[in-house]
Amino acid sequence: MSRNRLHEFRLKADITGEKEFQPLEPKNQAMDNKNDDEGSGDTVIEVKESVDSEVESYFMEVNDTRKMIQELDTDVERVKQLHKTIFSSVYSDERKKVELDNLISVIKTSSQVIRLKLKDMKEANFQAQEEGGASAPVRIRTTQHSALQQSFIDVMYEYQIAQTKYRDKCKAQIKRQIEITGKNFSEGEVDDMIEKGNWSVFTQGIIVLETQQAKKVLADVEARHQDIQKLEQSLLDLHGLFAELAVMVEAQGHVVNSIAASVMETVDYADKGRRELRKAVILKKKVRKKQICVYLTLAMVVLIIALILTSYFCGLF
């Protein structure tokens, strides 16, 4: 499908020893250049380096956050798997449940950490934006931030879907087990029972039966019910986070994620020198304005004094 023309290019461009080509070499070359035209180039390079180190440290931050999001993603995947195994096994495996509980609490804390991190980044971006407008480092920041945020939203959305699915499955199982006891309940009644954890109607039926098996069913149902309650609790814990995510989604929209929109945002790069120059021009204008004001007031004062003097002298005569 694609054709690599690098070899052809290197032959034609007469670049020898391409294999040994060191990435460091051009840097030296750049240094040479710098030494060649001393003075004029010096300041420019300094500016660039400060920008680069700033960008570099930002990249580190981005990498860290991305790593965290990836870890969160694997945790969520694990939760999904656990859900599956818990449902497919006949016996309720306590170890699996403990693991699930642990995972859920890990997800809870790490998602909060990521959320705070993203928030911090956003605030820093705002600040940078106010200082630098749409300059390249600022755009790097916004691009990376929104990409991370999107990834985070995706992962949390996955998690939420997994949780609700699990809850629905638990509910369905409880319903089935209630039906097995032979009593018929309406959909609403079952929902009510699950919500309130009120098993009196149900236990009545079983007490009548009083079999070993029925007791086991009851224990099972109660265990499932506990699961649901735990789930509800964990979703409730994350309620604030989801509310925030909802705001994020709303604010971000689809359009931010579009490459074309991102390209449209770019502006011509004006290097720092030119920006300084513009500042200087503005300052100069301001100074001139002030000067004019001073001259005017001086003239006024002189005029007034002259008036007073003349009227004084006129009064004398």
């Binding site: 920008v51 960008v55 990249f59 300059s135 390249a136 480092p137 755009r139 790097i140 691009t143 990376q144 490459i259 991102s262 390209v263 449209m264 770019t266 502006v267 011509d268 790069y269 004006a270 290097d271």
Partner: peptide, 12 residues
């Protein structure tokens, strides 16, 4: 990719 740029504009 750190950012996307427009080929035709003056870039930093």
């Amino acid at each position: 990719i750190s950012m996307v740029e427009d080929l035709y504009k003056k870039r930093q």
